Amino acid sequence: MRAHKFDVALSAPAGSALLSDRLADLAVDALIDEADLSPKPALVDRRSSGAHTDLHLGLMHASALSLWPAFKEMADAATSIGEVNPQLRETIGRFGREGEAAMLRTTHGVNTHRGAIWALGLLVTAAALNPDDFSSAGLCQRAAHLASISDRHQPVTVSHGRAATQKYGAKGAREQAQMGFPAVTQAGLPQLARSRAAGHGEQNARLDALLAIMSTLTDTCVLHRAGEEGLHAMHNGAQQVLAAGGSATLGGRRALNQLDQRLLSLNASPGGAADLLAACLFIDSLERALGDVMRNI
């Protein structure tokens, strides 16, 4: 099992490590765990680069690690400012842009985690705002409130995701956050719990959580790369895997392989769903990793 900086921090005496450090550790761990999860349909994993020609697993790891300072600074800002307001929104927006710049320097210009910076940045900030409430409902409510505030300093740019939302009239990452991450709270986390309760094993449970997100999400990464045909293929294929019993069953694995091949043929990579799986894993880890420690500080 991989050793993380967080594992060392948690073994230290209660209160000796800053909350912001621990939250940044968990955010980076969520990104690395999402990248390592295999076999993911048309996504970078331990098997291959999926539908991508410019990405590989090592690059995803390096990108995740480059974001640690930005996540820590967001958590520090939340602790310092102490409430959801325009100052906090603009402060974490600045740290997010600095984190994106660090990511692009690390990847030599390849966008590996832009969407994840947005989602996890909001959730890290929301966690630091109220360490007494790591519930998914509380976290996502605070994150939604924060995401709904305008950032006056946000540059006007047209990303692939934004272009897809405009072309297809779809709701993208911004709207997902402003609604409180329903793909996470209503699909990913419940499926993760169901698959664990069924004894499907942790990796299969995480794959099932990804598939639950993919089954309904309007993934603008897929829309950009493969249009509505790709989005329908993702929705239908993910639903078929879950209907067959999930990734832990023989039928589910066959359906998962078929989904992988279909998305690869369309050059459709569900990057938005992957970002939200990382958010799901971050939320899932919070109470288990920090709850008892924070109550004793």
Rank of each mutant, 00 (worst) to 15 (best):
A30P: 04
H4M: 05
T91A: 00
L211A: 08
L139A: 04
L256G: 12
L231H: 11
A17C: 15
L250P: 02
S195C: 08
Q191M: 13
F6H: 14
E73I: 04
A273V: 13
G50R: 03
L59A: 00
G237N: 09
V156H: 09
N236V: 10
N296M: 14
A147D: 04
H4G: 01
V222I: 10
H113M: 12
G138R: 05
A62M: 02
C221G: 11
P131E: 03
G138D: 07
N204C: 10
P190S: 08
H224L: 12
D275V: 03
K171P: 05
A248K: 15
P39C: 09
Q186I: 05
L55D: 01
V293Q: 11
T157G: 00
L55W: 02
S265R: 12
M60T: 07
I149D: 05
E100M: 00
R152G: 15
Q239W: 02
A209V: 06
P39A: 14
P41K: 07
S150V: 11
H200N: 14
K72R: 15
E202H: 06
L192N: 12
A177W: 15
Q87Y: 03
P13S: 11
L104P: 01
H4Q: 02
T79D: 10
A183E: 15
T107A: 02
S63R: 00
D133V: 11
I297R: 15
Q240D: 09
D45C: 05
H113I: 13
R196I: 12
S63P: 05
A14L: 09
F181M: 01
S48H: 04
A30M: 01
D133K: 13
L189T: 15
E73W: 00
M234L: 14
S66R: 03
D76G: 06
A183P: 06
L207D: 02
G58T: 03
R152K: 05
L281D: 09
I32K: 03
A35V: 14
E175N: 08
L65R: 06
K5P: 00
N267K: 09
A173W: 01
L120H: 03
L263S: 08
A17P: 09
T91S: 07
Q87F: 03
G237K: 10
A128R: 13
H200G: 02
A226R: 04
T125V: 11
R152A: 15
G199F: 14
L26G: 09
